[in-house]
Simulated assay, not measured.
Amino acid sequence: MMHLKTNFIIDILKILENPYITIPAHESWYQHTFTIHLLYHPPYLWETLLAFLERRAIPGVEFADASSYARTLLIPQSEYHVSLKGWGSVTHDFEHNQLKVEMSASCYPELCNILIRLRHLFDLDFNPEVIKTELKEPWIDPHLRLPGGMDGFEVSVRTILGQQITVSAATTLAGRLVKHLGTPFNYGHPHLQYLFPNASIIIEAGRQNLLEGGTGIGDVLGPLGITGRRAATIEAVAKAVQSGEIALAPLPIWQSGALNYDAIMKAEHIMKQLSAIKGIGPWSMHAIAMRALGYPDAFLETDIGVINRMRDIYPEIERKDKKKRLAYAEAWRPLRSYAVINLWK
């Protein structure tokens, strides 16, 4: 279901008729908007998902509160070898079981790509009936969705920054990174001023530092409080993504209400590629796969939130007993990611 504002349709027709038409500055493509509605299978725990996104929102790039989520967008356009810039905001239409998405008109050329990412971000193809059948623990809510990410590289950077530190500390580091290397993009939202730096920007920053006599990406990110090891890992992921060696795009995990095992196998292949990068251990590999790819069977047995919650539920599991946590989690395959989200809740 899609609703487009009339003036936007007229402008699209003008562009189709004359690709060289100049739009007056006061009619910026970032100020024109169009609206779409994305249906989901109810019930939908909107407030819980928003709370997850709000805690992890990257300052300047994302914003979430009790009723909405908004962010800037930098979407690669493979056909033209450039990136599309824009913004989007999402609210919940409870009455009609759908999300209402407003986007800048600049997003229109990549609308199909963006819709795939949005459905992934909010886990809209999820089938709660499968969870009810497979995960029967009393503490699991079968309607809780798996939050994804709009950009896989962004998710990977955010995950690397979050290694062995708190969520709030990782968010602070991400905000510093964005202010230092992000592209300014201010269309009027008080909390959104930047585009997240893509892989090319990270690589170029390291290259420029080397040309200037520095040691590379560590010199660039070190003053922000990012350790040299994490800086090197971020750069390595950036190079793998830019070269096409690793594709961190959402996979069609759910198809017609069932798990797509071909997509799951593809995700597991990408996870092996990630694990070959120095600095990407099991925790990072699973966290990236869960949010960047939509992998349904990630399990973070060393995550402090998982450790504490499993200790509360299963007192017989000692805090240091990683093997026992893994053994308990075997019963939750192939949906361990949904168990993790419930543990974090």
Rank of each mutant, 00 (worst) to 15 (best):
I253N: 00
H92C: 15
T22H: 11
N7R: 10
T171E: 05
M271L: 09
G152C: 08
S243K: 06
R230C: 07
I288E: 01
G148F: 06
S168P: 02
A263F: 02
C112V: 08
Q208P: 00
I304D: 05
P24E: 06
E102R: 12
W254S: 03
A263S: 09
T48V: 15
K345S: 14
H189G: 11
N260M: 03
G60A: 09
I15N: 01
V82G: 01
L38Q: 02
R176W: 04
T227A: 09
T133S: 15
D141E: 13
N18C: 09
S275V: 10
L49H: 00
P109M: 05
V220I: 13
N308V: 07
N198K: 04
G149T: 02
W29T: 11
A292W: 00
L211D: 06
G214R: 00
E47R: 15
I217V: 08
N97C: 15
E134D: 10
L135F: 14
I9D: 05
K136H: 12
I21P: 03
Y30S: 11
A238C: 03
L111H: 07
K320Y: 13
I288Q: 01
I264L: 10
K239N: 09
K272A: 15
T183A: 11
S68L: 13
L326V: 14
T35L: 07
A169T: 13
Y194I: 07
F196R: 00
L121K: 00
E137N: 08
P147Y: 07
T133H: 14
I313M: 11
I234V: 13
V101A: 08
I23C: 10
Q208M: 06
I270K: 00
I317C: 10
D151M: 02
M265K: 07
A236V: 06
L121M: 03
M265E: 10
G60F: 12
H180I: 05
I270H: 00
L343S: 07
V101F: 11
F122G: 02
R145Q: 07
I165E: 11
A105L: 06
N186V: 08
N209G: 01
N97D: 15
D303I: 12
T72G: 04
Q208H: 04
V241A: 07
R325A: 09
I36E: 03
P138Q: 12
I201W: 00
N342T: 05
Y187W: 14
L45H: 10
T72P: 01
M1F: 07
D151R: 01
L111T: 01
K100Y: 06
N198E: 09
T48A: 15
R336F: 06
F153K: 00
P128G: 14
V101Y: 04
G206D: 04
E316T: 14
K14Y: 10
L248K: 03
I277E: 03
F185A: 05
L4Q: 02
A170R: 06
Q163S: 14
G305H: 10
S67N: 14
D123G: 09
R309S: 12
F52W: 12
H180F: 08
T33K: 01
